[in-house]
Amino acid sequence: MHGMAYRKAKNHLMNLVMLACTLAVLIPLGLIFFHILKMGVSSLSLDFFTQIPKPTGEAGGGMANGMLGSLIMIGGASLIGLPIGILGAIYLAEFGGSKVSTVIRFGADVLSGTPSIITGMVAYTLLVVPMKGFSGLAGSVALALIMIPIVLRTTEEQLKMVPGSLREASLALGVPFWRTSLKVTLRSAMSGVLTGILLAVARVSGETAPLLFTALGNQFWSRDISQPMAALPLQIFSFAIAPYEDWHKLAWAGALVLVTVMFVLSLTARFFGRSRHSG
């Protein structure tokens, strides 16, 4: 038999190894965040949130049009993607169970694993080509295609966790099945569903590739979804590869804003997830 001291030492060693692995994951995250903070915070100003980019050579300017465009396109993507994702999840969790649902589930998993640039190409073929131009709408559709599988699968998992006794309680009161699904099952799973929605929004708010040949980007204010539209990640991309020092600074500031938004969204999602478990 090995002595207690040996086992304790082994335990200690393994704990250290696991701690090291955890740090290896967290350190890059910390480095990214602090580097972006350092580089971006000096360029953040009121102008950044209210002004559009200035012409080359002029100082100042901001990314307000990109932020507005991102908001519009994420809003559009949510309008398209959330109903499809949530209703699809209700079908899978409450009505499915056949071969059709297996196929849908598999399809959703493949879709969520598809590189987002491919999703952009799909939206390009579906909308940009027939409409003969880049548009915010095409950007929204591309983002919606990314949201749908995330929302579908998380919502389905949450619906399946609702105890059957609640459905029975509602049905036994003479409530039709579809009303039960919407008003009892979905409502009981709401905090988990919200978590999934927020994670999906966080995911698409940083997407650049699918917007490259759908929304294209815009140097000016763009509110018309049938026209090319600015987006924060697109502006970061084009400013970062431009040869001007002050554009780089704006790109850092944009990155800081984007990371902060995603951080807050993820934290909020965690909060919703937690409040569910504590009752």
Partner: peptide, 18 residues
């Protein structure tokens, strides 16, 4: 649904809507 409105049910485990 119309049958369940006439024939109500109480379950083994209390199941109020949480």
């Amino acid at each position: 649904v119309s049958i369940r409105r006439r024939v109500g049910m109480v379950f083994q485990k209390p199941n109020p809507f949480p």
